[in-house]
Amino acid sequence: MRAYYYDNVPGDQRLPHDYIPSKPVFTETLISLGVKYWTIPVEGHESKVDAVAQEQGYKNRDTINVSKEGLGAVYEEKIKGFFQEHMHEDEEIRYILGGSGFFDVRETPSDAWIRLAVEPGDLLVIPAGIYHRFTLDEANNIKALRLFKDEPKWIPHNRSSETDINTHRIDYLKSIGVTA
């Protein structure tokens, strides 16, 4: 996984949107935001992903293929929805099996976007309450294993004055040392 500050230049969301020269984001910054990641080679990944799942308390999983073929008629709608700035009341855990894409997370308190370029072998945990979004890159395809603490669910709460006071958002801010 490569992490860097998003350039905020208008244009296709699927482009890298990297500054020239790049402004990398270091592991310490991601840790301070509660973002976790591991690199686990796809070949033979099962036992290592199972170990992380057990250690983190993830009991359920499914696989998603985000592509025109995988999502069919709802593809365009889903891609637009994934790129809307939102938060979840649960962690978002993704292990990339194939393809590639971008997760953008909001740095707090600066409110800058940090782009996380993911590819096969990346296991990413985005904490509950952090504002983020997702998009494919120009290859238009990603296959990911989704891990869940409880029953599989993916409920986005688009950023608003209501999400700013959501208990999970407030708890997230406290966990990174920011008072709401």
Results as ranks from 00 to 15, higher is better:
residue 9 V to H: 13
residue 43 E to T: 15
residue 18 D to E: 09
residue 145 L to Q: 14
residue 46 E to V: 12
residue 162 E to T: 07
residue 76 E to G: 01
residue 18 D to R: 13
residue 169 R to C: 10
residue 3 A to T: 09
residue 55 E to A: 15
residue 69 E to C: 00
residue 137 D to K: 13
residue 34 G to M: 09
residue 108 T to L: 11
residue 32 S to C: 04
residue 49 V to I: 15
residue 49 V to D: 11
residue 25 V to I: 14
residue 162 E to W: 00
residue 45 H to G: 05
residue 71 L to W: 06
residue 169 R to W: 01
residue 47 S to N: 10
residue 95 Y to A: 08
residue 125 V to G: 03
residue 180 A to G: 04
residue 180 A to R: 02
residue 25 V to G: 08
residue 1 M to H: 12
residue 26 F to I: 11
residue 9 V to Y: 08
residue 114 I to M: 15
residue 14 R to S: 13
residue 91 E to I: 06
residue 129 G to S: 00
residue 100 S to G: 14
residue 113 W to I: 03
residue 110 S to I: 08
residue 172 Y to H: 05
residue 118 V to P: 00
residue 61 R to Y: 12
residue 122 D to C: 10
residue 123 L to G: 02
residue 80 K to Q: 13
residue 124 L to H: 02
residue 73 A to T: 03
residue 161 S to I: 07
residue 83 F to Q: 03
residue 12 D to H: 00
residue 136 L to S: 14
residue 83 F to Y: 15
residue 88 H to W: 08
residue 52 V to E: 14
residue 71 L to D: 07
residue 37 Y to V: 00
residue 112 A to W: 05
residue 153 K to Y: 06
residue 106 R to S: 12
residue 2 R to G: 01
residue 66 V to N: 05
residue 17 H to D: 06
residue 26 F to L: 15
residue 82 F to K: 08
residue 112 A to M: 06
residue 66 V to M: 14
residue 52 V to G: 12
residue 111 D to I: 01
residue 165 I to R: 02
residue 91 E to Q: 09
residue 54 Q to R: 13
residue 174 K to C: 05
residue 153 K to S: 15
residue 154 W to E: 05
residue 134 F to Y: 12
residue 142 I to L: 11
residue 153 K to E: 14
residue 96 I to K: 06
residue 164 D to P: 01
residue 23 K to W: 02
residue 74 V to T: 08
residue 77 E to F: 04
residue 57 G to W: 10
residue 171 D to V: 03
residue 131 Y to N: 11
residue 29 T to V: 15
residue 39 T to L: 06
residue 7 D to M: 10
residue 129 G to W: 00
residue 70 G to K: 04
residue 172 Y to V: 07
residue 96 I to F: 09
residue 108 T to H: 12
residue 34 G to Y: 11
residue 4 Y to N: 04
residue 53 A to V: 02
residue 81 G to K: 10
residue 64 I to H: 01
residue 139 A to F: 01
residue 124 L to F: 03
residue 121 G to K: 02
residue 66 V to A: 11
residue 76 E to F: 01
residue 62 D to A: 04
residue 169 R to V: 01
residue 151 E to N: 10
residue 88 H to V: 06
residue 100 S to R: 13
residue 91 E to C: 10
